[in-house]
Design a protein around this nucleic acid. Structure first.
Lengths: 157, 157
DNA sequence: GCAAATCTTTACTTTTATGTCAAGATTAGC
DNA sequence: GCTAATCTTGACATAAAAGTAAAGATTTGC
């Protein structure tokens, strides 16, 4: 289970925009420079994020990208859903082996686990916004654990 | 965030072995047939799983594969760690863009989320054994939700 | 000890994901 | 309106993952 390059870099670019002040924006070369990727690659990612409505692009001199919504209102669950092309919904069609249809189609023993894991991850991501990813690693780490800590406190059945 | 082909098919092959009775085994063509993949592909996967100690292989006529441990004692967390080549430990080295080292090396705002997600997933997988994946989808689904349900019951902070 | 069945291993091919490029379109400022 | 800066788009190139093939090694049973 891994995070794709598109998810990784796409999210990082968004965090750069989330760190900007009101009215500021970044050009492709600026974003690329701050993330250590090529401007062409940043362009492709921003195109996707623009299409999905996360960012607002302005062309021409003085142009650039900025977030289309407040960083505190953009949840990672939404972002990842776009950047990983909603993978969970094509999972079973992707792993059909040499056949046209998965042999387990209709009654699959591992599907509940795949789907369940995805739900767990989406649930965790739905509690984090871009705004919470701005700052030092230590700070973000603390925020993340506080949020996750809430879920498993006082477990007794 | 997606599951690789190696994880998907590797796990499925293990579940086939977990469903066997005491002393039974399956050959590569049998495993391949039951999972709808080629025997060559099954061979590669079983080789990996054998190397990792999950299965026991016997060569020659009457040979085949069987689990090296009891299905109820093989946790998905261990299996996935092998099948995804322990991805989390190479994450930061994998996404360095056009540079030799990630620009965020040492202080990364999204790393806590990547690592945290991985922990959440591993935690969920560490509560499921191969034995629990044997059976109908409905049955497995029920087991999975019972296990996960336990974690979020009585949350109050 | 020979033959058939089976796993093992390495090299190769194919497919998919990633990343690059170049031409086009839009805007600001002169 | 012209120029420079910028985003947009589709085609292309590269790299990584997935899958295949073939030759080798081991075991059983006759």
């Amino acid at each position: 289970m891994k995070i794709s390059a598109q998810e990784e870099y796409g999210l990082r670019c968004l965090v750069q925009l989330a760190a900007l002040g009101e009215g500021e924006s970044l050009t492709l070369p600026q974003i690329a420079g701050r993330e250590g990727i090529s401007a062409a690659n940043a362009g492709k990612l921003m195109w996707l994020l623009n299409k999905a409505g996360f960012v607002r692009a302005i062309r021409g001199t003085k142009g650039g990208y900025s977030l289309a919504r407040l960083p505190g209102e953009i949840y990672l669950s939404e972002v990842i859903k776009i950047l990983d092309a909603d993978e969970i919904n094509t999972h079973c069609e992707s792993y059909t082996g040499v056949l046209d249809l998965c042999v387990h189609n209709g009654d699959c023993g591992i599907r509940p686990v795949i789907v369940g894991l995805h739900e767990i991850v989406q649930d965790a991501l739905s509690q984090i916004t871009l705004a919470q990813l701005v700052g030092t690693e230590a700070k973000v780490d603390e925020r993340f654990h506080r949020i996750q800590g809430l879920k498993n406190r006082h477990v007794s059945v």
